[in-house]
Amino acid sequence: MKKLIFFLFATLLMNVGLLAQVFSTGTGTIKFFSKTSAEDIDATNNLVKAALDVASGNLEYAVSVNNFIFKKTLMQKHFQENYMESGKFPKSTFKGSITNNSSVDYKKDGTYPVTAKGKLTMHGVTKDVTVPGKITIVGNKAVLKADFNVNLDDYNIKVPANNASQVAKTIKVSMDCSLVKK
């Protein structure tokens, strides 16, 4: 009888524990770089939303396009208005999962190489992407880092001919999000 009750509570606690294992943040960072011989452009977004479900490895990101801050406000306006059309497409998202989630021990501090696979949506275009990255577990935090390239043509982002020398065709994106256990 006592054994049964103990088993009962143990099962209950395990389930609650699993349920609570969502790491999330609203203040992650995504930077991007455009490098050409004529001009280097970079922008930073410090209000990236991200969530990771430990049990399934499901991973989601949401980014408000207008929260990317540039060094020149005119560039920021052009980015919003002419390139990303943020009025029509205010958000960019990633929805997918970590393919090798079982190889990450979320209870043990350390750095684990991972691969995220899923759908990246921006400028109204959704593409399947596979992105290699790293998860670093420090206490109740999971720091997700990844670098990847975005090809503007893939997302139907057009650069006019007279700006072609200033805006790179491939944009380097760098992501650094510190997720906290909920």
């Binding site: 099962t11 389930n15 499901n58 990101y61």
Partner: peptide, 30 residues
């Protein structure tokens, strides 16, 4: 006890709503 949390967990898996991102974007119009 075992069953209910499992169904709940299954819902979060398929519901694609890990992120609480449903409220409309409130930004200044540029």
């Amino acid at each position: 006890v075992v069953g209910i949390p499992t169904t709940l967990a299954a819902q979060t898996d398929t519901g694609m709503s890990l992120l609480d991102d449903t409220e409309p974007v409130r930004e200044k119009v540029q």
